[in-house]
Amino acid sequence: GTLHLNGVTVKVPSLEKAIKAAKKFAKKYNLEVQVHGNTVHVH
C-alpha cells in the first residue's frame, strides 16, 4: 500500500499496516484518514 501523510508519500508493505499507521498519526495530529483503493491519505 501507499501512505500519504500531509504530502509525504510512504510505501508500506501491507495496506493494514498503512491504515494502522495512518490512524495513529491522524489521532495524534487530529487529522482525517481516507482510504482510496490501496492508498491511504492523511490530511
Rank of each mutant, 00 (worst) to 15 (best):
G1D: 08
G1C: 14
T2Y: 15
T2G: 05
H4I: 15
H4E: 06
L5H: 06
N6Y: 11
N6D: 05
G7V: 10
V8M: 11
V8D: 03
V8K: 11
V8W: 14
V8E: 02
V8I: 14
V8Y: 13
T9G: 04
T9E: 09
T9K: 09
T9N: 07
V10M: 13
V10T: 06
V10L: 13
V10S: 05
V12K: 04
V12N: 02
V12M: 14
V12F: 15
P13V: 13
P13Q: 13
P13T: 12
P13H: 12
P13L: 11
P13Y: 10
S14I: 08
L15F: 07
E16Y: 08
K17W: 14
A18E: 01
K20C: 15
A21S: 06
A21W: 15
A21H: 07
A21D: 06
A21Q: 07
A22I: 15
A22T: 02
A22P: 00
A22M: 12
A22R: 00
K23I: 13
F25E: 00
F25A: 06
A26K: 04
A26E: 01
A26L: 09
K27M: 07
K27C: 07
K28Y: 08
Y29C: 05
Y29R: 00
N30A: 06
N30V: 07
N30H: 11
N30C: 14
L31G: 04
L31W: 08
E32W: 10
E32N: 11
E32M: 11
E32F: 09
V33Y: 06
V33E: 00
V33L: 07
Q34I: 14
Q34G: 04
Q34N: 06
Q34D: 05
Q34K: 11
Q34S: 13
Q34R: 12
Q34A: 10
V35T: 02
V35C: 14
H36F: 11
H36P: 02
H36A: 07
G37Y: 05
N38E: 06
N38K: 04
T39Y: 11
T39L: 09
V40M: 05
V40Q: 04
V40D: 02
V40T: 02
H41V: 14
H41T: 13
V42N: 03
H43I: 14
